[in-house]
Write a protein that binds this DNA or RNA. Sequence first.
DNA 1: GATGAATGAGTCTTCATTCAT
DNA 2: CATGAATGAAGACTCATTCAT
Lengths: 204, 204, 204, 204
Amino acid sequence: MDAAAPRTRIQEKNRKAILGAALNVFSEAGFRGATLDRIAAEAGLSKPNLLYYFPSKEAIHVALLTGLLDLWLDPLRTIEPAGDPADEIVGYVLRKLDMARQFPRESKLFANEIVQGAPRIMDIVEGPLKSLVDEKAALIRGWSAAGRIADIDPYHLIFSIWATTQHYADFDAQVHGILGPGDGHFTDAAQFLDHLYRRALAPG
Amino acid sequence: MDAAAPRTRIQEKNRKAILGAALNVFSEAGFRGATLDRIAAEAGLSKPNLLYYFPSKEAIHVALLTGLLDLWLDPLRTIEPAGDPADEIVGYVLRKLDMARQFPRESKLFANEIVQGAPRIMDIVEGPLKSLVDEKAALIRGWSAAGRIADIDPYHLIFSIWATTQHYADFDAQVHGILGPGDGHFTDAAQFLDHLYRRALAPG
Amino acid sequence: MDAAAPRTRIQEKNRKAILGAALNVFSEAGFRGATLDRIAAEAGLSKPNLLYYFPSKEAIHVALLTGLLDLWLDPLRTIEPAGDPADEIVGYVLRKLDMARQFPRESKLFANEIVQGAPRIMDIVEGPLKSLVDEKAALIRGWSAAGRIADIDPYHLIFSIWATTQHYADFDAQVHGILGPGDGHFTDAAQFLDHLYRRALAPG
Amino acid sequence: MDAAAPRTRIQEKNRKAILGAALNVFSEAGFRGATLDRIAAEAGLSKPNLLYYFPSKEAIHVALLTGLLDLWLDPLRTIEPAGDPADEIVGYVLRKLDMARQFPRESKLFANEIVQGAPRIMDIVEGPLKSLVDEKAALIRGWSAAGRIADIDPYHLIFSIWATTQHYADFDAQVHGILGPGDGHFTDAAQFLDHLYRRALAPG
DNA sequence: GATGAATGAGTCTTCATTCAT
DNA sequence: CATGAATGAAGACTCATTCAT
C-alpha cells in the first residue's frame, strides 16, 4: 500500500529492520556520516542483503524521510478551523513538543537533512509542506483578522513553534549539557511554551 | 599554544584563509561531508600545507568552533543587570536574530555539530556555555522574583530564543522553500519575535 | 549429455529462451560485461532458475558458442570440389556476407570471444575448425595446382574472406559511423567483394 | 604538449607506466574485463596512486585510445595523390599489415572498443576518422574516374583493407590455432594481400 | 614553509552463485 | 521446476594522512 509494497513476511520484517536501523544511524550521524556497514550491522543483515531490499544508501534515506512525512506533518494537520483559536494553536505546540520527546530520532533525521540544504527533500518542502503551511497560515490569519487572536504573522508563528519544540530533540546534546540528563525538563518546557504562546495569541 | 603564538605574517594570513575556507565547507557539508581537498582548494593552499598549520581535519574543526565561541556568546553576555529587563531580553533576541542573518555559516556550523551530539565541543557546552547560561538565568530569575518580568523559566526562555532566531540560519532551506527566496522575511521575523517576547515577559 | 537429453517441452523451451537472451546480451556486452540478471530478465526467468538449466555463466556461454558452431561453419562446408572453383569461392564469400547481415549477433559473439584470446573455445579452434579449414585449403590448393584458379595461399584467402565479411557485423558501429545508418551498404559490399575475389582468383 | 601536460619526471614516467600496463590489460581483457588492480600491479603502483594520475578507469581508457589515435590513422594519411595509385594503396595495405604485427595490442584495443559499439570513441569515429576516410575515398574515386585504377567502391576498399590486415592482430588466437605459433605467416599474408589488391586495382 | 607523490583504510556497489522452501 | 532470500568476493573510487624533498 506504500511506495513499493512488500509482499512476503520476511520482506516486511527486513524492510522494517533496515528502516529502523537506518533511522538510528542517519539521525545520529547524518547522511554522509552514516555507513551501510553500520546500518546492516544494526539491522542484523549483511551489507549485500541490505542492498537486496534497497537499491542504494540514498534510497534508504529517501524511503525513511518519505515514510515519516505523514507522522511529521500530522500535528499541524490537526489544527481545526472549528476549535478555539488559541487552544488549537497551543494544542499544536504541545503535541509537537510531545513528538520531540517521543520521536527525537525522527526529528534529528529531518534536522540533519534540512541543515544541509534539504538536497533530497526539497520537492517535499516546496510541495506538500508549503501547501499545508499555506493552508494553516490562511486559517490563522483569518483568526487574526476576526480579532479572535492577536495580529501576528502566521508563518513566523509556525516557524517559531517548529523551532522551539524541535529544539529539544535536535539539540538535546546542548540541552542536556546545560540542564543535566533525563527528560524531566519537558514538563518545564511545556509550561514555558504554554505561557509563551498563550500570551502571544491573546487578542488585543 | 592553541590559537595563540602565530609567528609570521604569512602564517597568520594562512591560518585565517584556512579557517575561512573551513567555515564555508564545514557549515555547508557538515564535518563528515567536508573534505580537506575542498578546504585546501578554497584556501588556496596545498593539502599537506594545510596540515602543516593544523594537525588534522578535526583540529581545524575544533579551532573553528572555539575561535567562534566568543562571537557566538557575546550577545548573551550583553544582557546587563542594570538595564530594563524586558528591553535587555528583547534586545538580546534581536541581536541574535541579526546574527542569524549576518553569520548564517557560523550558526550552521554549531547546528551541525550539536545535532550530531556535539562530540567535539561537549566540554565547552558543559563548561563555559553552561556557566554563562547559569549566570544569566540567575539574573533573569532575579528579575522574575522581583516582579519586574513575568514568572517564567529562564532556561527555557533562553532555549526558545536560541531556537527561534537560529532557525532562520540553520533551516534556511526550509524557510526559503516556504516563503520564497531573499531575506526580506527577517524584518517580519523581528517584528513577530518582538511581539512574542514582549508579551511573554510583561509582568503580572 | 550436453546439448542432448532435454526432457520436457518446457525444458526445451526455457533452454531456448535462455540461449536466445544470452545471445543478445553476450554479443552486445561481451562475456564480462554480460550479467546473469540481464539474461534472466530477457529470458523471462528468475536467476536461480537460469542456473537450474545451466550450471554457470560460463556454461551458458560455451553452450551458446558450441551450439552456433555448425551454423557458423556451414557456409565453408558448402564449398564443393565438384563445382566451378571461382564460383564456389565467391559463392562462399557472398553467403558469408549474407550471414553477417542476418546474424550479426552470432558474429559478434565469436568476435568477442576470439579477440580476447578464445579462452573458452580454443579446443574447437584447434580441433574441428582447423580440420575443416585444412580440408578446404587442400581443395583450394588443388585447384591452384591444376591451374583452375590463380596461385594463392588458401589459408590467407580464407582468413581474408572471414575478415572482409564479418567486418560488417563485428565492427558495424564503425561502418555506420562512416557510412551512416541502415544496411543498404551490404549491396555495395557484395559488389565490391565479388569484384575483389573474382579478380584475385582468375587464373594466370 | 598532449592533453594534460605532465610536468615532472616522475609524473611522466608513471603516466607512461600506467598507459603501458593499461594497454596490456585493456587489449587483452576489454574494458569491462580489465581491473584497476591488474593495471596497478603491472604498472608497479598502488591502486590509489593510479587514481592520483588518472581520475577513473574510464579516463585511462580514453587517454589510451586518443593517445593512440594518430598512430592508428597515420598509415591512411600517407596515401598521396601524387603517387602511383596502385602503389599508394598496396603500400597502405602493407604498412597496415606491418602495424598489425608490430602493434597487435593497440589493434585489439580498438577492436574491443568497436565490437562493443564504440561507446567511448563514437565521436572520434564520426568526426576525425570519417573525415579522413571521406578525403581518401574521394581521392581513390578520382583515380577510378580517371581510369588509373579499376572502378571500385573506395569505402568498401578501405573497410576490406582494415579487415584483412587487422585480422592478424585482432583474431590472432584463431590464426595461430589454425596455422600454429610464430609470426612467419605475416610474410605469406603480405604476399597474398599484395596479390589480392594488385589484381583488384588493375584498371580495365 | 611548501608541495608532489603515495597509501591504508574505508565506502558504496555489483555479481555469480548458493540456500531454503 | 521455480523463486525469494542471502552472501562472499571483488571492484571502482574516496579521503585523511604521511613521506620525501
